[in-house]
Design a protein around this nucleic acid. Structure first.
Length: 595
DNA sequence: TCTATATCACCC
DNA sequence: AAACGGGTGATATAGA
């Protein structure tokens, strides 16, 4: 293979990691392609090294599978990070994205896909268990771990041989660059108000019980769960005809809302169901230092978005729980998110200048209403709030390919009104629709969809036109945030978490304003690089210790829960506990994972 | 009693 | 046939 690199190093670490904590490297194996040179380092010898035992400069290609893990070990060891990173996990995801993969997208799955030999899954599991058990290790165990680590490195060499011809190196290196950013972010983590988190975990079931005690007037809940059978009896008793699907009561929020209109007693049940559904806090991964850390699962989604575990990641559960985000003393944090990101992206990549004008106006929704001729040219959010809201709902509907029926339901207006709004979108943004229709048709014919930086969807299986239509916006959104995260972390700014169209950054309180300004400037620059000069705006919400993050959608729920906590604790001297109810203490325990 | 599947709710 | 994109996860129910 021809590559403009003096050295090509294949690298793998085994490491120990307790839930919420950064990784602790156990051993390292590295092999160089041309010379076949092999390096094996175990335990203490690794910790003594001040830098990697191989070059990591711009003339060296660093190859790994899921490189954020390896870079995480570099960060733990305080080694300079490799300059050129090629991640075969990411390239395999890109090569097969959209296709069914019977063996998954792990290293073994990739080997199987290319018909290459490697170790068995059972052996990999055994070795993984050995790594997550943690030290100390016997000589035999250490040798086994090193041999296993080496088998992954050797597999990697074979894999690159097969994949090389498919790899678009400059763009692959851009993706690799993000793997380093992801490693920095995974290491930084999000600061959590640990005392409040502990109170919440300790009193979880008691809070739930209190809410139920207040509001479950008809005894529809049992052991904290809504019981459909009891609800059926309740309906029978009260002579209420309820929508049924396949012999079962429809219990979704929409049905409850609809039924609540006619039956006021249903409204209170619906409200309680809604409140309780937001009470989830099980496995949030909080490290010993009070920071929430978890695998970001980069490039996991078809659109290349990150897809971290919703239960481990503080941004996964309901927004009210973000009240747990609190910078430590002397620090401040900021949630910086792109404004109407998908609308701006759609405008830019379709080349629809009318749509671009709407974005540039600062209020795309109002601009749409004006451009469609539905309101006077000088209409504003203040003068025409109702129109703006309708056009906003229409824009969001278009982004997901919503039809007139669903849009009508969402707006609470007639089908013809919804149809008219969607027509106005088609008429106003002709270029966008022409471009999007062409693209969907070509994908339906089996041609791949590709972002400007090469993230690809290979249409396979049952195709969904709405999914294909949405792909470019979402995938370019992911490209933009990846580039922004790379630039911001490389600039030395602490990024706690990426959230699809947003970054949470942290800094000393007296530096936060300049850090936010720098972050916003880099995010704007990242958007212009991906969108060929078109710039996306961003908003920033800053909060300084002892303030906590407060998403307006969750403020009420946060207040309710905190009041109940105070109430519960006022009545008890010892630990709060309800007989027979197990508190989810697992949330405070540590668990181990490994490469 | 355990597991697979469907449903539902949450996030951007 | 369905008609709201990309996801994760909790829970209820059905089936072995």
């Amino acid at each position: 293979m021809e590559a403009p690199y003096r050295d090509i190093w294949f690298v793998d670490f085994e490491f120990y990691q307790a839930g919420g904590d950064p990784p602790s490297p156990l051993c390292l194996v590295a092999r160089e392609l041309h010379s076949n040179r092999l390096i094996r380092v175990f335990g203490e010898d690794l910790l003594k090294m001040e830098s990697a035992p191989f070059p990591t400069d711009a003339d060296t290609l660093f190859v790994a599978y899921y490189a954020s893990a390896e870079i995480g070990c570099f960060l733990a060891l305080k080694w300079p990070i490799p300059v050129r990173i090629l991640d075969l996990y990411v390239e395999f995801r890109n090569h097969t994205n959209g296709m069914p993969l019977p063996h998954g997208s792990g290293l073994l799955g990739a080997m199987a896909y290319f018909g290459l030999n490697c170790i068995e899954a059972v052996e990999k599991t055994a070795m993984r268990d050995l790594a997550l058990r943690g030290g100390p290790y016997t000589h035999a165990e250490a040798a086994a771990l090193l041999d296993y680590c080496q088998s992954d490195v050797d597999a990697l060499v074979d894999l690159l041989g097969r994949m090389w011809a498919h790899i678009d190196l400059p763009r692959a290196l851009l993706r690799g660059r993000y793997m380093a950013a992801a490693a920095r972010i995974e290491r930084a983590g999000t600061p959590i108000d640990v005392p409040t988190f502990a109170r919440l975990v300790r009193n979880w079931d008691a809070v739930k019980g209190k809410l139920l005690g207040r509001a479950d007037r008809h005894g529809l809940w049992e052991k904290g769960s809504f019981r459909a059978a009891r609800f059926a009896a309740f309906l029978e008793e009260h002579n209420i005809a309820w929508p049924v699907e396949e012999g079962r009561l429809k219990l979704d929020d929409t049905t409850f809302r609809m039924m609540a209109k006619a039956r006021p007693e249903i409204a209170s049940i619906q409200e309680l169901r809604h409140t309780l559904s937001q009470l989830r806090l099980n496995d949030l991964a909080v490290g010993a230092d009070g920071f929430n850390r978890c695998l970001l699962s980069v490039f996991r989604a078809k659109t290349s978005r990150n897809q971290p575990s919703n239960s481990k990641f503080i941004f996964g559960p309901s927004v009210w729980l973000r009240g747990l985000i609190k910078p430590p003393e002397g620090f401040a944090a900021a949630y910086v998110d792109y404004s109407q990101q998908e609308f701006g992206i759609a405008a830019a990549i379709s080349g629809d200048v009318v749509m671009m004008d709407a974005y540039a106006s600062g209020d795309p929704y109002m601009a749409f209403a004006i451009q469609a001729g539905a309101v006077p040219i000088d209409a504003t959010k203040q003068s025409h709030p109702v129109d703006r809201s309708r056009f906003k709902v229409c824009v969001l509907a278009v982004q997901y390919g919503q039809g007139e029926d669903s849009l009508a339901t969402k707006l609470g207006e007639s089908k013809s009104t919804a149809r008219h709004l969607l027509q106005l979108h088609r008429q106003t943004y002709r270029r966008y629709w022409e471009w999007n229709d062409d693209l969907v048709n070509s994908a339906l014919l089996g041609f791949p969809l590709r972002t400007v930086f090469g993230w690809t969807l290979h249409p396979a299986g049952k195709l969904n036109a709405r999914s294909l239509a949405n792909f470019p916006s979402q995938a370019h959104g992911a490209e933009i945030l990846r580039l922004a995260a790379s630039m911001v972390t490389e600039g030395g700014i602490t990024v706690c978490a990426p959230v699809h169209d947003a970054l949470l950054v942290m800094a000393e309180s007296d530096r936060i304003d300049e850090v936010v300004a720098a972050t916003q400037a880099l995010m704007a620059e990242a958007s212009t690089i991906v969108l060929n000069g078109f710039e996306l705006r961003s908003d920033a919400q800053i909060f300084r210790h002892p303030e906590r993050y407060a998403d307006e959608r969750g403020v009420e729920m946060w207040g309710t829960v905190m009041d109940i906590l105070d109430e519960l604790e006022a009545g008890h001297v010892g630990p709060t506990c309800i007989a027979g109810v197990q508190a989810p203490v697992s949330a405070l325990n540590t668990r181990a994972i490994s490469s």
